[in-house]
Design a protein around this nucleic acid. Sequence first.
DNA 1: TTGTACGCGTTATCAT
DNA 2: ATGATAACGCGTACAA
Lengths: 321, 321
Amino acid sequence: MGRSRLAEKVLAAASELDYRPNLAARHLRVARSSTLGVVFSRLDGQSVSDLLHGLDSEARNRGYSLILADAGGDPARFAVLLGQLEKQQVDGLILYRPPASIEAEVNHLRVVGIPVFAVYQRPPNLDIPLVTYRPTRSIGAAVDRLAELGHRSIGYLGSDSDIGDFRTRLLTEATAEHGMTFSVLRVEEYEVGDFTAVSTALSRFRDETAVTALLTQHHNIPSVLGAVHEVGQRIPEDLSLISFGDGPWLLANRPQISAFSSRAAINIGLATVQRLVEVIDGTTPVDHTYEATEAIWIERDSVGPAPARGLLRGFGRILNR
Amino acid sequence: MGRSRLAEKVLAAASELDYRPNLAARHLRVARSSTLGVVFSRLDGQSVSDLLHGLDSEARNRGYSLILADAGGDPARFAVLLGQLEKQQVDGLILYRPPASIEAEVNHLRVVGIPVFAVYQRPPNLDIPLVTYRPTRSIGAAVDRLAELGHRSIGYLGSDSDIGDFRTRLLTEATAEHGMTFSVLRVEEYEVGDFTAVSTALSRFRDETAVTALLTQHHNIPSVLGAVHEVGQRIPEDLSLISFGDGPWLLANRPQISAFSSRAAINIGLATVQRLVEVIDGTTPVDHTYEATEAIWIERDSVGPAPARGLLRGFGRILNR
DNA sequence: TTGTACGCGTTATCAT
DNA sequence: ATGATAACGCGTACAA
């Protein structure tokens, strides 16, 4: 890239006077803020770190920066934050686990012309593009393996925003192929570190069907472990456990916890910013769903042969105290 | 706050035309961006989530928003990010675990007049305000307890940025009172999930002094657990373990891991933004260190009686492979 | 009290 | 190719 003679002089003068372009003036002139808002329903540990890493690095590469907003688990606040970010004239929005209740705000954003993307999950009522990974094969592999180990009934534990997404759909299909029972267990949003909500939820399995293998999001794993320990059961002898999303804690635990790798998280961050920026620049039409990457199924010690009886002993105690 | 008759009409008209103030124009005019940059040396799990939550909520309360930047573990990139954020005209900067190598950039920022705060830790060569918690009493309590349990030699495991801060100082003082040996063990920055760096570091204890209790930052805990498991040792029988910073994973682990509570993290986020904004507004002179809150020492099962011999068996094996 | 005009720093356009 | 000028929308200062 040969610089012209003139350009040389300009650059020299610029560094001489240490000229710094004024971003605010530029933004005013071009009517774009080069800023992406990213809104979290809750900042929860590992998955968030990985995702943010991917988002941030790709955004900076493309000359955008990230404005963070955290609803702290409160759906109402999520809506408020969307309003604030609109005022801040972000060029685009990325929503992490958005609650279904923000439909009105999302529609408003569509009217104003601010592109909105969801990552990982999208409530059924929100008609916005979603970037996520494609765990078809890995979920297939995991279910195959569970079948091979004699599991006949598996469960998925999740809160509102988790349920009804592709995971449950894929699990439904995969288990059907093996003639297995698949149950979805809804757990209320709970305070991080509070095991009782999850204990309560798990106890319900007793009334429904004797689940011998449980899948859940990474951030729920500590609570599940706590709940299982609390009633003196063991993994994988009493229950096989699999995490959506990987992280160092899964390896540190004994037994090590099986996972669908969330190295995906970084790629999802990357892909999200990439798509979003393309939409902002108007170079690409909007798609409804983007699949960033295939997840990897990692078998570890938390998956073992199905126990004779399901997850039933003990949890009643918790409920009755 | 009674609104004047005129104000009423203005507001009515405003909402009628759905007038939206243009932030860029305002920023240009007032020469402030109402934006705080927060730079992470690495986004690592739980501690980051808690901190960001505190930072974000307080920043929004005060009309600021957070621009995120992540160095992903690369000190050189940290410096670059500081440059970028300066160009983005952030009104202030918050640095999480800043590397010592950014001294030049920090000095430059001082010249340009952008206030810079560190949270949690501050390398000795960086003369910037620090907001952190005050673990004096809790560290005292922990060391008292370890002494009571017969521990004579305790260690602190940390990477560059951790060492030389208040933790090591306080530990030095507290252990001295009991006539205990205190060793600081430096571990290179390592990839998350890679246990070998920590294994290697731990093995050095063998040549130095037989440590029976180990303290380290929360994000190092998985690696320590992995390393200890790898050589077939057990906690707390072979080694007592204490985490700086709490989180759900510590409770999920068996044995549960003792910690200095990082509910502090949220408060630290709060206090940081508070102080920083005061400095930006010029209402307060800058202090060198702010103590946001006292940490709480939580004893759990990972702390037990000192074993007869220290941490020596097994780690040699790791080194020689 | 109400109105008017200017300047913030940049980019885009128009005339040279 | 180069130089001059207008406009982005807001806050403020000064005039009426």
